[in-house]
Structures are given as C-alpha cells and as structure tokens.
C-alpha cells in the first residue's frame, strides 16, 4: 500500500475506489455479477453467519455463479440473524433474514439464478445519509 500524502491524493483515491465499488456493484459483466454481503458482527457470527458465508462462497463457486461475497457489520436486524444482502446486477439490494444453509441454497437456486424472491425478506426500514 502506498501512503496517501495529500488531501488531493485522498480525493483521487476515493474517486478511484468509488469507481471500483461501482464496478463491483454494477459490474462490467452485468449479466453475471452478483454481490452478497453477510452481516458478520458478533451477533451474526454467533447465529451462524460464518457457516453461511463459507457455504455461499463454496456453493456459488461450484455452481459457476460469478459473485462477490463480502462480510459487513451489523445491519441492525438482530431478530433475524444471520442476515445477508443480495444485490443482483442492476437491481436494488434485497435483505434476507433467518438464513440457514437450506435458505442459502434456496436463495442461490431461486433468487440468484432466476430472480425469484423467496420468503424471509426484510424490508429496509431506514434511511442513511448520502455522503456526497
């Protein structure tokens, strides 16, 4: 990693990274790129999020689905842990709660492969500040 020397550098870096995140979210290869975030705070991990994350990474790979699986912090839906957020290319993110291995499998087969929503969706009920 190189040092960020000036504020201008930092702004440039931000733009570059934003572009990268956008690329990851929207995807150059828009047809096949799926993004999944797994809520991995202590509460999520305690409810089994680690197993789900590993399962998703392995299974998506086995089933030849191009996807980026990342960890993130608490989404706030402690009552429904483990929770994951799935973003299909060009679509708004969808959060699924109570994800066990079976549910994860169903999400891959139905939602990720066919865009068919499955039970267990948690509607986003908050606004966040736009950072721009």
């Amino acid at each position: 990693m190189t040092k960020v020397k000036t504020l201008a550098d930092l702004k440039k870096l931000k733009d570059k990274l934003q572009e990268k995140v956008k690329l990851r979210e929207k995807g150059l290869d828009a047809e096949n790129h799926v993004q999944i975030k797994v809520a991995m705070a202590t509460c999520g991990i305690a409810s089994g999020a680690k197993v789900i994350m590993e399962f998703l990474i392995e299974e998506l790979d086995k089933r030849n689905i191009e996807a980026v699986v990342t960890q993130t912090g608490c989404m706030g839906y402690c009552f429904a842990e483990p929770t994951i957020e799935v973003t299909l290319p060009g679509q708004t993110p969808v959060v699924f709660g109570y994800v066990d291995v079976r549910k994860a499998d169903e999400i891959i087969e139905k939602y990720i492969k066919n865009g068919e929503l499955v039970d267990g969706i948690i509607p986003q009920n908050y606004e966040t500040i736009d950072n721009n």
Binding site: A39, T72, M75, G76, E85, Y126, T128, I129
Partner: peptide, 11 residues
C-alpha cells in the same frame, strides 16, 4: 430511521 452514526454499518 435515519442512520448517521450507523451510516456504514452493514454496508
């Protein structure tokens, strides 16, 4: 809900 302190949590 409005998330300021939690703006990046879960994101």
């Amino acid at each position: 809900q409005l998330r300021i302190a939690l703006r990046n949590c879960g994101f």
